[in-house]
């Protein structure tokens, strides 16, 4: 039954990975940049959730939306101060057009980590669980109630986010800008608002992932590193900019890691996803679900 246990736990982790990764994918889809500070949005969420509940004693259920807001706010501010100049004056950037986003978001990541270290301190804060500790026995499986709840909430949030992008008014604007930035702006879409919105949503979702995982993985200044690296693997594997691709890749990664850690090697568990990624790119440079663009 160990296999089934591992698969279920892999899926649970996978849904939380997905929550992280789709924000990154969304930003790439719309702005064509990789946000190297994505892990720090996760960190903001983990701290917001843990510190708010630990210091004020309010129900962790209220802390979840607050974590989302905190992440959105950080996302919004980053977009306004650092990312907007990139596309506002894109045509005039003769120099360092592609490198800018990588470097500036890397700087942002470093800044947020060192600020957290300086202001909050290096200690870890574990957020309270949403439910009292419980174990659910499902036939032969023993599942941890809180983990299951986190995954369920993750699925619900994913569904809302995907629904929002697919069907809402603003979601359609996002899709339009993702397909053709110039065209969308000519057709009257507010490109600046869409870009801010995308960063806010992305920051919020990463923060929610941080909050949902805070009871299991305590918040520290550098807690964002591991989900960030996973997200990079996921979005490239799934095809940059493809949300369904990211979700499938997240679940795949969760299960592969969970099984491989036991049956191949625990020590090298973090490398399996990376090796799969490199292999996939050798044969499909656009990722599993990515579309090959016209180059010439």
């Amino acid at each position: 039954m160990l296999v089934a246990d591992l698969v279920i736990n892999g899926l649970i982790i996978g849904f939380l990975y997905a929550l992280m990764a789709i924000g990154l994918s969304l930003i790439f889809g719309v702005l064509r940049i990789v946000n190297f500070a994505h892990g720090e949005f996760y960190m903001v969420g983990a701290y917001a959730y843990s510190l708010i509940t630990l210091s004020s004693g309010i129900s962790p259920w209220f802390a979840l939306p607050l974590a989302f807001l905190a992440g959105s706010l950080v996302g919004l501010v980053s977009e306004r101060l650092l990312v907007r100049p990139l596309y506002a004056g894109y045509a005039n950037w003769g120099f360092m057009r592609d490198e800018y986003a990588v470097i500036v978001t890397f700087g942002l990541s470093l800044l947020l980590i060192s600020l957290a270290d300086k202001i909050i301190g290096p200690f870890s804060y574990r957020g309270p669980t949403l439910l009292p500790p419980s174990r659910i026995e499902l036939g032969p499986f023993l599942l941890n109630g809180n983990r299951l709840l986190a995954a369920a909430l993750g699925i619900a949030i994913l569904a809302i986010a995907v629904g929002f992008v697919r069907y809402s008014y603003w979601g359609k604007q996002i899709q339009a800008v993702a397909q053709n930035r110039l065209g969308a702006s000519l057709a009257g879409a507010n490109v600046n608002v869409v870009s801010s919105l995308v960063f806010a949503i992305s920051g919020g979702l990463a923060a929610l992932a941080g909050a949902l995982l805070a009871p299991f993985i305590a918040a520290t200044p550098d807690v964002g590193l591991f989900p960030a690296v996973k997200s990079y693997v996921i979005v490239v594997l799934g095809g940059l900019g493809s949300i369904p691709g990211s979700i499938v890749a997240s679940l795949l990664l969760g299960v592969v890691e969970s099984l491989a850690a036991v049956y191949i090697s625990y020590d090298y568990r973090d490398t399996f996803g990376l090796v799969v990624l490199i292999l996939v790119l050798l044969f499909r440079p656009q990722g599993l679900f990515g579309q090959k663009g016209r180059e010439v």
Partner: peptide, 30 residues
């Protein structure tokens, strides 16, 4: 490490009489 389930689940399948914890925080807490 942040997630030790791959180590823990096999122990659950075949529980020993004692587990000795030799990690430092924060890994110890996790």
């Amino acid at each position: 490490g942040k997630d030790f389930l791959p180590v823990i689940l096999p122990l659950r399948a075949n529980p020993p009489d004692a587990i000795v914890q030799l990690l430092l925080p924060p890994a110890a807490y996790i």
